[in-house]
Simulated scan of single mutants.
Amino acid sequence: GSSWLRVEKVGTSGVEVLTREEVEAVAAVPVGAPLVSVDTDAMERRLRQKLPRIDTVDVVRSWPDGIGLKVTERKPVLLVEKGGAFVEVDAEGVRFATVDKAPKGVPLLELTPEPSASLRRFGGDGLLREAVRVAGDLPAGVARDTRVVRVASYDAISLRLTRDRVVTWGSGEDGAVKARVLAALMKAAPKAGQFDVSAPTAPAVSAS
């Protein structure tokens, strides 16, 4: 039969950590099949199910003879150490991959909950979501310098930065305001070691 309007080419875009080969192997595009018969919805579901690193994927027909896979990968905002490896957590609190080596520039989460009402009320997952919320609110410069996000309770979240600097953040509330206040404090006192924005209307700075 004619090769016109049959699948002959597969193109993949948007991959960063995943490889094109991995994505195309899972997609299992039926090369040689009529383009119109390809079930793009089933392919998208399969990709998201088998490759949890994928946040969104669009499978598109590229007439006359191609299928395009447009991938957006999840980005880690926090890492959780587990058995010598690292679980990547995205901005929605989804644990989506386990890697042997910590990716650069992604802070480690230390969940050290005190047996408190907040732990009973929010649970470990709730505290993880608060940590993710804080990580997402950090000014870009601070996010780059953040090594550890430590969560002791719902309203006791702190950050450990490069050069042994510590930020007392408090709860995840008012994150945008705290971020602005912290950026201003760091500009005004670049050599300070301790920053407290837990009450952003009354922030504090100290040498160490």
Score class of each variant (00 low, 15 high):
Lys101Asp: 03
Val106His: 01
Asp100Tyr: 05
Gly105Arg: 02
Phe86Asn: 04
Glu110Val: 14
Pro103Arg: 04
Ala85Cys: 07
Lys101Gly: 09
Ala97Trp: 05
Ala102Phe: 03
Glu114Ser: 15
Gly105Lys: 03
Val106Trp: 02
Gly105His: 03
Arg95Asp: 07
Gly105Val: 11
Leu109Asn: 01
Glu114Asn: 12
Thr112Leu: 14
Phe96Gln: 08
Ala102Asp: 03
Gly93Arg: 10
Val94Met: 12
Pro107Val: 11
Leu111Glu: 03
Gly105Tyr: 04
Lys101Met: 11
Arg95Glu: 04
Val94Ile: 13
Phe86Thr: 01
Ala91Arg: 15
Ser116Leu: 06
Asp100Ile: 05
Leu108Thr: 12
Val89Gln: 08
Val89Ile: 11
Lys104Val: 12
Val87Leu: 12
Val99Trp: 00
Phe86Gly: 00
Lys104His: 13
Pro113Gln: 04
Lys104Phe: 11
Leu108Ile: 07
Ala91Leu: 11
Pro103Gly: 00
Leu108Asn: 10
Val87Lys: 09
Ala91Ile: 06
Pro113Leu: 00
Arg95Val: 01
Phe96Asn: 01
Pro103Phe: 01
Glu114Asp: 14
Ser116Phe: 05
Ala85Ile: 07
Phe86Met: 03
Ala97Thr: 05
Ala85Glu: 13
Phe86Leu: 00
Val106Ser: 05
Glu88His: 00
Glu92His: 12
Arg95Met: 11
Val106Thr: 11
Leu108Tyr: 00
Lys101Arg: 14
Pro115Gln: 14
Pro103Trp: 03
Thr98Glu: 15
Phe86Ile: 00
Glu92Pro: 07
Ala97Gln: 12
Ala102Pro: 09
Thr112Phe: 05
Asp100Gln: 14
Val99Cys: 02
Gly93Tyr: 10
Ala91Lys: 14
Val99Pro: 01
Ala102Arg: 10
Lys101His: 10
Lys101Thr: 15
Glu92Ile: 08
Ala97Gly: 07
Pro113Val: 00
Leu108Phe: 05
Asp100Lys: 13
Val87Pro: 12
Pro113Glu: 03
Leu111Lys: 10
Glu88Asp: 05
Val94Phe: 13
Lys101Ala: 14
Ala85Asp: 14
Glu92Cys: 12
Pro113Arg: 01
Glu110Tyr: 05
Phe86Ser: 02
Ala97His: 03
Glu110Ile: 09
Pro107His: 03
Thr112Cys: 09
Lys104Ile: 06
Ala97Val: 01
Asp100Cys: 06
Lys104Met: 11
Gly84Leu: 04
Gly93Ala: 08
Lys101Trp: 08
Gly84Thr: 04
Phe96Arg: 06
Glu110Phe: 07
Pro103Cys: 02
Gly93Asn: 05
Ala102Thr: 11
Glu110Leu: 13
Pro103Tyr: 01
Val99Gln: 10
Leu111Asp: 04
Glu88Arg: 08
Val99Asn: 11
Ala91Phe: 09
Thr112Ile: 13
Ala102Tyr: 02
Ala102Ile: 04
Pro107Asp: 01
Thr112Met: 10
Val99Lys: 07
Leu111Ala: 07
Val99Ala: 09
Ala85Met: 05
Glu92Gln: 15
Gly105Glu: 10
Gly84Pro: 03
Val94Glu: 13
Lys104Ala: 15
Leu108Ser: 11
Ala102Asn: 08
Pro115Ala: 14
Phe96Val: 08
Ala97Ser: 13
Ala91His: 13
Thr98Met: 10
Leu109Trp: 05
Lys104Trp: 09
Gly93Cys: 09
Pro103Ile: 00
Pro115Asn: 10
Val94Cys: 10
